[in-house]
Amino acid sequence: MKTVIIGANGAGKSTMFYHFNGILKPKEGTVYYDGKPLEYTRDALSDLRNKVSIVVQNPDEQIFSSTVEEDVAFGPLNMSIERDEVERRIVTSLEKVGMLEYRERPTVKLSYGQRKRVALAGALACEPEVLILDEPTAGLDPQMSQEVMELVNELCLAGTTVIISTHDVDLAYTWAEEIHVLRKGKLIYSGSPEPFFANTEEVALSGLVKPHTFSINSTFESLRGRDEAPYPRTNSQLLAKLSTPDAKIGVIRMIPFDKEISEIPQVCGNIGIYGSRTRRAVRESKTRVDYYFNAIEGCCLDAMSGLDSVLVYDIELESLVRDTISVLGKFGKVPEMI
């Protein structure tokens, strides 16, 4: 389940998730992990923190070592893992965040975005069951935010439970399956995002605003005299909903990427790429690509405007890509995938 904890500054988001890994101990009440109440002994806590990793907003607070690889190795070495395994984890986690070529660099020489990715790699190297990300996209430029969110989706697909804590309503709305809203230290809502955002007063009292897609949809539909549901969460879903039944829908040509970049057909239409492996391969081969980031959305938007497009993606993400596109069926026509 993709979970978001949302609330204004000072609503208690971080205080809450520091309870999840036992940094803070509740004055009253109990925290459960996997159905068992937390124990606050040294060993139990250490065990828990290997399973529940937190990536804080400001990477400078959690990078301690002087080189990238030392920092990524910090967690695993604390877990007394064997050297070969540590090496494997350094490589895989740095590869995932696209920082492998920086492994021997001093951390102080990295840019903010790079430091943020190293902090994430440090958490990934612990191979946690639950990953808590505090404002994962704050301070990142738009492309880098997209890249981080795509990585997060890959992790979810691989079975990691990801919890994002944020005040960014647009991010929360497009990504979350379930939201928990905090206001002044109280949990005021848990459930799917739509019912919460439909309640203007609650949203305002929580220090938040309605997500753009949500409010555009509600105004459009009330003016057209139609039902607000189903609620589109992305622009392509909104478009699918607004398109007429006889509108021409474009075709998405699907090309799974396995080992080598096969000839991308130079057909007319935009080319999008999805997945970290594909992105790396494309960067090396310098192929022409139109949508480096947010490509599924880009191709869907094209399809809604009646244009054909090509989508190249990591083969292991096949189901994720197809599912994402198929969601359009709830709102209108699904573009044909060939």
């Binding site: 890994n21 804080v56 959690q62 440090g122």
Partner: peptide, 22 residues
Amino acid sequence: MADKAQTALSCRNYKGYFPLYR
């Protein structure tokens, strides 16, 4: 910063010394 670093260190299972990889 020291305060926050302390919390972050605990999150990463700091055991009182910095292990060395290389």
